[in-house]
Design a protein around this nucleic acid. Sequence first.
DNA 1: CATTTTTTGATAGACGTCTATCATTTTGAG
DNA 2: CTCAAAATGATAGACGTCTATCAAAAAATG
Lengths: 354, 354
Amino acid sequence: MVKPTLMDVAAAAGVSYATADRVLNRRGGVAEKSVLRVLAAIEQLGYTRDVTAANLARGRSYNYAFLIPAQAGTFFGEMRAAVKAEAKARASQRINIMIEEVPAFNSDGLAEVLESYIDRDLSGICLVAIDSPRVRKAIQALRAKDVFVLTLVADTQSDSRDAYIGLDNLAAGRTAGRVLSLASRDGGVVLPIAGSLDATDHALRFKGFKQAITFDVTVLPVIESFDRPENVADAVRSTLEAHPNLTGIYSIGSGQNGLFAALSEVQKSVTYQRPVVVLHDLVGSVRTALTIGLVDAVIDQKPDQQIARALDAMKALSDGETLPPDFGTIVPSLYFQDNMPPAPADGPEKGPSL
Amino acid sequence: MVKPTLMDVAAAAGVSYATADRVLNRRGGVAEKSVLRVLAAIEQLGYTRDVTAANLARGRSYNYAFLIPAQAGTFFGEMRAAVKAEAKARASQRINIMIEEVPAFNSDGLAEVLESYIDRDLSGICLVAIDSPRVRKAIQALRAKDVFVLTLVADTQSDSRDAYIGLDNLAAGRTAGRVLSLASRDGGVVLPIAGSLDATDHALRFKGFKQAITFDVTVLPVIESFDRPENVADAVRSTLEAHPNLTGIYSIGSGQNGLFAALSEVQKSVTYQRPVVVLHDLVGSVRTALTIGLVDAVIDQKPDQQIARALDAMKALSDGETLPPDFGTIVPSLYFQDNMPPAPADGPEKGPSL
DNA sequence: CATTTTTTGATAGACGTCTATCATTTTGAG
DNA sequence: CTCAAAATGATAGACGTCTATCAAAAAATG
């Protein structure tokens, strides 16, 4: 009942360990019939290689790097924390993870860091892509050196990386639309605020949003805030003035502080019911706003899950597996005050025990 | 830059490998000052034990068992599939997982299976608890043999098992209440249907539901269906007759087919807007109902995540770690048509390659 | 049949750790 | 200082696999 070893396989196949090993590791120079017998034995015994022992013998360890934009207090902050947590958790399994801060919104800065990684002994690298010729070239150079390249959150051209892990933005937008439609069942007016529709993620969210809006709900023209809090606040204020009957707001991008400011003004004057507010990413201030009921629903892209998924993907690729088609698709989560996950804490402590 | 080994630690501490080992594994018989030097070296080098090598040397493997109720086509079916998937994925890491079917709703049947596991060499066992003296006794017997016992989905007394992994039912109910409140903003009438309020999970969901309902929404008396489809169908039909203005239905338990039957009748007669329907567990027929728009929102308890969590918990316990307080709490997920996760498929194939 | 080529067997040393044993050194008590 | 007790060092064999090497056997070639 114990797990069979390659020795057992060899014995069952009636060959030597060496031959079984040659088959398993495709070293060649084995007669057809022996190959078959070994494979049959593997099949019959249900043998699976003990990967940990194999890695030990090979002296192999997995080195991965994560390039996370330096942008404090945002979604990327959570992401960094998640990477750190995973790094700690997997340290004892021969998985080494490096975290590097890269300047935000700066393709040359990103490219520079990428280029600096070309000669480190890496198995995989994970980055939030900013498309530019230089970045693309750096990625190609890495892949040419057998480094797996995954994009996270933001993608490049799909043929220039090995996988993309990121939110299904269309689904996210549709979810937002669904919530606001439900909340405006007898007709209503809703306001979408995006950062910029030139950003593909925002554009996709907006598209999904419109898809899910039911016919009797009016969607006001989308406002582009360029993620500046003042712009968001102004937009909300002036819209509320023009449409006192506003039933919903969908904040597609960032600049949430402006949103909160404008909303708390409304909350004080109780003359009308405040619109239902849906926004993105359950981070710091958003969490607070949801808790105190300043906003109603948050669509989250689960940074921790994305990191875990990315690592699983890189490990699988390193082990020569292929990823299922939509492995990287992150389904948006919808959180109310009521089903908010606990704020991320540090993982379980462990001493150097047993 | 390579990962330090215990040899390196010993060298840095100026002691022999044997002494370093004695400290690391708490074998005793080491002078205080040596202990300190070794610990300092561990700290300074950032040494972490290579657990895989340690397990290899110890000949240790983790044997876990999952007892899943035999109930085809339900939530537990998904759960079984998830266990199978995890079993495959972790087979190469010295983790062996056995799945056993146990009769549903049968405490003696469960106890019998538990008793039969007393002499197998297990590190942990995971079960959907049905409380009974015999079951409790069997659990105690297992724990006395250093088997970790986790309850899944349904709990026993909290002091008689090592951890409970399960849905936060109160949060689930609140989430449902929130959705129906949102959808009934200008007042409305909602109907809760439970299986039985004697079941703690249903009672908790109902409690949370009432908490989250806003003041201007009327909650009809809860109907207990005992999870029989006919009862559910009858309840829905008669309530719709009595309250043509019904705005929402919350189906707390099972018997969903009756719900679907009654709803599709309503859908045909388009005289009024059908109530918003919230129910539990994204399985088979529920998935279909959500896709075609027969129901609006599904609260899911993520069986796959529960299994993964349970395994992580058992592994952590086996490794002598302690679990953070609410490690087992599963936050309910809310799915609309728009953010439904893909149906569970089989994991990535891998040959006996490299 | 002799010779080359292909296939197989046997085995050693490594990977990082565990466990155990035995010898040696250091320490503390009397 | 003596002697026992405590602490330390050195080392070997194991875990399951990888890689490499050398010799032996089997098969194919002429």
